[in-house]
């Protein structure tokens, strides 16, 4: 297995990285708007590629769609480094216990390579890039790794795993600590159910009061058909269609880039209006 890791590190070498990072799409210059944060949320159908060249080419396919928008936050899906699974020597193995062991061994290499590409995007695009790999969730801003709670234009953003999106107490604590945007890099499910999906980001955007950035990986992954719906959520009263979505993918798969300009003043007014102390003394009869 050490040989696999070694061969993979040759395929994903520093030299290859240097060559291909220069090929990343560049944004068009744009002005920041006070009180508004521009976010781009990506949904992609899983497609394994070979090498850094394949990865950068795939990522460029999405960057091109947000070039005019110049987002301040880009959210890619979770497990982005699995896209390298067509790289030598990974593709030589067929599925089974050895394959699973090998993937685990190579995870550090694939994750690190993915991180380097994302870090470069954040530097070239002067933005924060949020994504997940087999090693966890990451945020890079201007090439520098960030903590899971960081700032964009003086507004706090939290990056959370999906399981924490159903913990109202945790989310309330974050909003009380001035977090206004919650992001979760997502991954599709073969047994996707719309209402289960809504219960995470959408429902808690309503209950607690924050902008939610929910990315997704869908499509065929290791023999399973994954479905998901990327979206940007917000409390119903501040959404145009009164449906709790700033924008969402109308389909459960496919490549999409959702672009949203988040009005932070509107969200703040909503939070302040609801921030009336309420006594909860239930009287008994």
């Amino acid at each position: 297995m050490g040989l696999s890791r070694f061969l993979l590190s040759l395929s994903l070498s520093r030299k290859q990285l240097q060559i291909w990072l220069r090929q990343l799409e560049q944004p068009f210059p744009s002005k920041k708007v006070k009180g508004a944060i521009k976010a781009a949320v990506v949904q992609m159908d899983y497609i394994p590629v070979s090498g850094i060249g394949g990865f950068v080419t795939l990522i460029n396919h999405f960057l091109v769609k947000m070039r005019d928008f110049s987002p301040q936050i880009i959210v890619f899906p979770h497990l982005m480094d699995t896209i390298f699974y067509r790289t030598f020597p990974i593709f030589l193995f067929s599925r089974g216990k050895r394959y699973a062991r090998m993937l685990k061994e190579c995870s550090v290499t694939t994750s690190r390579t993915c991180e380097k590409v994302m870090a470069e995007i954040s530097k070239v695009w002067h933005c924060s890039v949020i994504f997940g790999t087999t090693q966890g969730l990451f945020v890079y801003n201007e090439g520098v790794r960030q903590e899971s709670i960081f700032e964009v234009q003086d507004y706090k953003v939290a990056v959370l795993p999906k399981r924490l999106l159903t913990n109202s107490w945790k989310l309330k604590q974050l909003v009380d600590d001035s977090v206004r945007i919650v992001s979760a890099p997502g991954f599709g499910l073969s047994d996707y159910r719309e209402w289960d999906d809504r219960f995470h980001m959408w429902a808690h955007s309503q209950m607690i009061g924050f902008y939610g950035l929910w990315s997704a990986m869908s499509g065929k992954f290791l023999g399973r058909d994954l479905k998901a719906r990327a979206s940007v959520t917000a409390p119903i009263p501040i959404t145009n269609s009164l449906d709790g979505y700033i924008v969402k993918n109308n389909s459960l798969n496919g490549d999409t880039v959702l672009l949203a300009e988040l009005d932070m003043f509107k969200l703040e007014s909503f939070i302040q209006a609801r921030n009336v102390p309420v006594t909860y003394n239930f009287k008994g009869h």
Partner: peptide, 29 residues
Amino acid sequence: ALLTIIFQRAANISDVLLTKAICWGTSRE
């Protein structure tokens, strides 16, 4: 309590929809 019953007068339709979403999410959580 084994059941919560809410009587609400809503000023606008967005409040109605927001309350419905909150009731559903909280009931489930």
